[in-house]
């Protein structure tokens, strides 16, 4: 059983490889689609590129070689995770990205837990208390939140909770000059994390709330719930032991699909809150026209999505025995 499980997960990961390859191909040709000399595009248009950097770019992309050879070289570099050099930051791109990965993972992880957790909770409440004032209030809030741009939520949170009330810092991941490790540091980071995490989770929380409510209503109408009632179980027992777990499955599926969208959202939230993750790096790259760095981030975030999807699949197998035992998804 354990073996079947591992095999299934491995299969899902391997499934992602052609997709990653496709992203490499797209990255490769995207640069060449850009108007003008590829080296110029890669170096940025601000003219700050030195001849040395231009030479380095030509060498890295082998721009004077035939296209197929350029591609082969590009692939070779990617295999050893050599994404090139960022002139702006004066560092290897892979290093830069690795440095920023942790902050993004922290933000995304917190937001996912928040949005899925509260989405499931609110959606379940709205379904169990269907057609009550409480459920109407939850659903109206969800519909409005679902229409709200992420960056605007972030700015509104800054105006209210950082600038007016002064409860939270406006930006950054830690107070400058504060201790850099230990418990105090963790508290400091957590304090900085509150607003960006809430801002990023808002939209997804609304999405999961709506989905969870629909799923829960459907589950509560199913035959096995009637069986559970006919057994004489209490309604809380029915909701928690029988309905909830079944109703969560579509939400988990959606959460897996939304990982890639959430990464996009984190670019926006990180640039709003100056949260030093991949998103802020992308924003900086955008401003300095550091396209090579931008493409590196795109490449890496795609890998992140593939990996996260594999993790979601593992969680899936824990929740649904039909997948664990049959090695495939069932309706």
């Amino acid at each position: 059983m354990w073996f079947a499980n591992a095999k299934y997960v491995l299969g899902r990961v391997l499934h992602g490889i052609p997709i990653i390859l496709a992203i490499v191909v797209v990255n490769f040709f995207l640069i060449r689609l850009a108007p003008g000399d590829a080296a110029q595009v890669l170096a940025g248009e601000s003219g700050a590129a030195t001849a040395e950097y231009m030479r380095q770019i030509r060498e890295q992309f082998g721009l004077d070689q035939p296209l197929w050879l350029q591609f082969v070289n590009y692939m070779k570099n990617l295999l050893v995770f050599d994404l090139g050099f960022s002139f702006r930051h004066n560092r290897e791109i892979s290093e830069l990205i690795m440095d920023r990965l942790g902050a993004t993972a922290l933000l995304m992880g917190t937001s996912m837990v928040l949005s899925i957790g509260f989405g499931i909770l609110l959606g379940a409440i709205a379904a169990v208390r269907d057609r009550t004032l409480l459920s109407h209030v939850i659903m109206i809030l969800a519909i409005v939140t679902y229409a709200t741009p992420l960056f605007w939520v972030g700015l509104m949170l800054i105006i209210v909770f950082a600038l007016n009330l002064g409860w939270f810092p406006t930006s950054g991941i830690a107070t400058i000059g504060a201790p850099v490790d230990g418990f105090e540091y963790a508290i400091d980071v957590a304090h900085h994390l509150v607003l960006p995490a809430i801002a990023l989770s808002f939209f997804y929380m609304a999405l999961y709330t709506r989905l969870m409510r629909a799923s829960m209503l459907e589950t509560l109408g199913q035959d096995f719930i009637k069986t559970a009632r006919a057994k004489g179980l209490s309604s809380s027992n029915i909701v928690f032991r029988h309905a909830l777990r079944n109703a969560i499955i579509p939400v988990l599926t959606m959460a897996g699909v939304q990982v890639s969208a959430m990464l996009g959202g984190s670019v926006i939230i990180e640039s709003v809150f100056g949260w030093p993750g991949l998103g802020l790096l992308a924003y900086e790259a955008l401003f300095s026209r550091d396209l090579n760095l931008l493409l590196g981030i795109f490449f890496l975030s795609s890998i992140l999505v593939v990996l996260t999807n594999a993790i979601v699949d593992v969680i899936y197998t824990l929740v649904d025995p039909r997948i664990r035992l049959n090695g495939g998804r069932h309706a």
């Binding site: 992602g16 850009a34 990464l263 996009g264 931008l294 795609s302």
Partner: peptide, 14 residues
């Protein structure tokens, strides 16, 4: 699979 918004950023930036 590709992060759609980052994809759009890359396309517009290029």
């Amino acid at each position: 699979t590709i992060p759609t918004f980052i994809g759009a950023i890359v396309i517009v930036a290029v």
